[in-house]
Nucleic acid binder design. Structure first.
Lengths: 223, 223
DNA sequence: CTGTATCCATGGCGATACTG
DNA sequence: CAGTATCGCCATGGATACAG
């Protein structure tokens, strides 16, 4: 492909195809099923995802388990060892490619990402807690979201689940994305009013910690 | 491009295009001029290299200096910070993508790589030393190479420079590449006879160290 | 030496629909 | 749920020539 013996080029032959690293990222984050992976790369066509999974399997990065209706995908040792590289790419991206166009904002991805890393141990243990988000800078169809934590499980809905709402977060997709990425801190976002929380005082104060940050934001702090 | 706010995807928007990482690798290794870069990515067309350099400049990874006949390219801070990622990709490639097809072997690249990392301090200081390489598994046109170290400078020729030859290395492109990458150790290669050195005893024993290893091989040892 | 210009073929990939 | 099938465009990028 590149015609070079250099191991960097051999690595990039496997990894530089469009979408490939994002699929690996999804698997590092724990996705194993086809449609689970699709949620992490929604703009990728299923045909292409299938093709990439096959490539990665051939390259020894992914192992396919089961077949037909119960197929799952797992990283091999080679795949797991891409973890530090993906992390480093994330840190580099935060530092040097942090300008987000409107095209980069996607509420489905944002809440899907929030769902999987919600620190449930910071939420009330014994009762269900529902937080409603209202985004003022997107079409009405995708403006309302509900985050429900109950029994140590997190759910996200883009429709009203009908539960009593414990807190409302009034903001926009862009501010919420920046806060989630830790481009903006919660305090400054609240101070500027680009994010507003309506809830009883205690919950209002605790909510930023309960929502947390994207895992790349965590990496930045440790670096 | 990917439509994701995730910094990994933003990073890959800059880095996942074909050849891009190899251009960055060349710059990390010190190349600054257009034709110098070309030697490191000989299968890349000049038009495409030009295009990639422009992209990297737009992305803030590369800074162009001068213009016209004396242009040079330098990594910015963002570019330098790709160093650890490229290193990690190299280590990963050594571990998990080390099978080399015949297409991956290239004597020009091999000797160009050897030239730039030759540990000249291990070579005789006061006199010129010439090592002739003869490869038995490639067309005659690219089978003979000369490595000349003189006055702390290394030169590589694909034609007979006419100097007295101090050592001859008889091998093939594939074995030499594997030894250079440290896939095979010098001692085992010599023992198996896939590499032969003809030289006075002292030089014969010292030559492996004088030639050294690819810089990725060094990284592997430190990991 | 440092690129640009041009051309063309290939196939990557996006979109959509459909199937076991 | 887990993919395949099909289609068609357009952009990528390989090759070559040439220009300042």
């Amino acid at each position: 492909m590149y015609g070079q013996f250099c191991p960097v080029s051999k690595a990039m032959e496997v990894l530089d195809e469009r979408w490939t690293m994002l699929v690996v990222r999804e698997m590092l984050l724990g996705s194993t099923r086809f449609n689970e992976l699709r949620r992490g790369v929604p703009r990728m066509s299923p045909a292409l995802l299938s093709k990439r999974l096959a490539s990665l399997e051939r390259a020894g990065v992914v192992r396919r388990e089961g077949a037909g209706v119960r197929t799952s995908y797992h990283l091999t040792q080679a795949g797991e060892e891409l973890g530090p590289i993906v992390d480093a790419l994330g840190v580099w991206g935060m530092r040097w490619a942090s300008e987000l166009g409107d095209q980069d904002l996607d509420p489905h991805l944002l809440f899907w990402d929030m769902r999987r890393t919600t620190p449930v141990e910071k939420w009330p243990r014994e009762r269900r807690t529902t937080v409603a988000f209202e985004l003022d800078d997107v079409p009405p169809k995708v403006a309302r979201w509900w985050l429900v934590v109950s029994g140590g499980e997190t759910d996200v809905c883009d429709f009203d689940p009908g539960f009593e709402v414990d807190a409302r977060v009034l903001t926009g997709l862009r501010p919420l994305t920046h806060v989630w990425r830790s481009d903006w801190s919660w305090p400054s976002a609240l101070r500027k009013g680009v994010v507003r929380i309506e809830a009883p005082t205690e919950l209002r104060r605790a909510l930023p910690d309960m929502i947390g940050h994207s895992n790349v934001a965590e990496l930045m702090q440790n670096a």
